[in-house]
Amino acid sequence: MILLRSLAYQVFLMLSVALFGGAIAIVGRWVPFRLLSRVARIWARANLIALKSLCRLDYRIEGLEHLPTSTCIVMSKHQSAWETIALRALLPVEHTWVLKRELLDIPILGSALRRFRVIAIDRSAGRAALKQLVTEGQHLLGTGHWVVIFPEGTRVPPGERASYNVGGALLAQRSGYPILPIAHNAGVFWGRRSLIKRAGTIQLVIGESINSTGKSAQQLSRETESWIEGVVARLPTRADLQRSPAQSD
């Protein structure tokens, strides 16, 4: 049953990307950014509803009161594809992403992503990529866009850790904008490169903003990593620990 549910959602996801992504790619250049972002939010919320309906995969948020009213740099744990959908649905519409440049080569999706003023990084470019992140990030922050960064740079399975890249912290240090840390356990339910979506409730925790004033990039990176990994360590690491009888197959 879990495989059938997962396949059904996968079909929904692909069709929704084709429909929304195709529309955004075609008309995006003539549509205001804010309106495009609202359309993307509808897509993301539709996918969260589909996950709950088809896969019985829900989520719970802790710390909504910590969402700032002003521009910030979001640094989130990266375990799954789920958070790329959920953050689009949950964050203010005026936000954009730091992502790997290869995503822009994906048919339909890549064309749609280009409409959202993303910071597309060549991860092999070293210092040039870091400079690009800081330069473009400062410009976007200055125009009122939140910037979303996955500091690990790739999806990391639950129970494992990867080094945090300093790019997001350097952007915070250079720009003076605060960091909003986000932790979750989405990988427990929707694994890296996995078709299976397990029933249960993903826990997402939003932390208090980390002030960047007077701190080095290394200090900001350590502070962000310590908070995120500390919260992740206390979240359930098995899907069955959060499943109710109604969610059982």
Rank of each mutant, 00 (worst) to 15 (best):
E136R: 08
G187Y: 06
H184F: 10
L103V: 05
S124L: 10
I85A: 10
F116W: 11
V98M: 08
Q138Y: 02
A125W: 05
A186Q: 11
I108Y: 00
L180N: 10
R155L: 11
L170Q: 13
L91F: 09
V188G: 07
S124Y: 06
T154E: 13
A89K: 04
P157Y: 10
H95C: 14
G176Q: 01
R123L: 11
P107G: 04
D105V: 03
A169D: 11
L180Y: 03
I149L: 13
A112T: 07
I149F: 07
R88L: 14
V188T: 07
R88P: 00
V134R: 02
A169M: 08
P107S: 04
G167K: 01
I179E: 11
A183F: 02
A86L: 13
A186D: 11
A186E: 13
Q173E: 15
R127Q: 13
N185L: 05
I108F: 00
L99G: 05
G168D: 06
A120K: 10
L109K: 03
I106G: 04
I121C: 08
S111T: 07
L140E: 14
W146H: 13
G144H: 10
E136F: 01
G137I: 02
D122A: 12
T135Q: 15
G167D: 07
P92I: 04
S175K: 03
G137W: 01
P178Y: 08
T96F: 02
L170E: 14
R174P: 01
G137Y: 00
R117D: 15
R155F: 05
T135D: 15
E94V: 00
I106M: 08
R161P: 00
G110T: 06
S124R: 14
T135K: 15
R101S: 11
G110H: 05
E102S: 14
I108D: 08
I179M: 11
R114H: 13
V188W: 04
S124C: 03
P181L: 11
A125P: 04
K131W: 02
L91T: 03
E102C: 09
A162R: 13
P92Q: 11
W82A: 12
N185F: 00
H95S: 15
A186L: 09
L140R: 15
Q132G: 01
I121T: 04
S163I: 02
W82D: 15
R115W: 11
E160V: 00
R114P: 10
A172V: 05
Q138K: 14
K131F: 01
V98Y: 02
R115H: 13
H95D: 12
V118L: 12
L130A: 15
P107C: 03
G137F: 02
Y177P: 03
R88Y: 12
R117T: 12
I121W: 03
G159P: 04
L91H: 07
A162V: 00
F116Q: 14
R115T: 14
R155Q: 13
G168T: 04
E152S: 09
V134D: 07
R115F: 10
S175Y: 00
P151C: 06
Q173Y: 01
G142V: 01
I108W: 03
L130P: 01
R155H: 12
E102G: 08
N185C: 05
G153R: 10
R127C: 00
V98H: 03
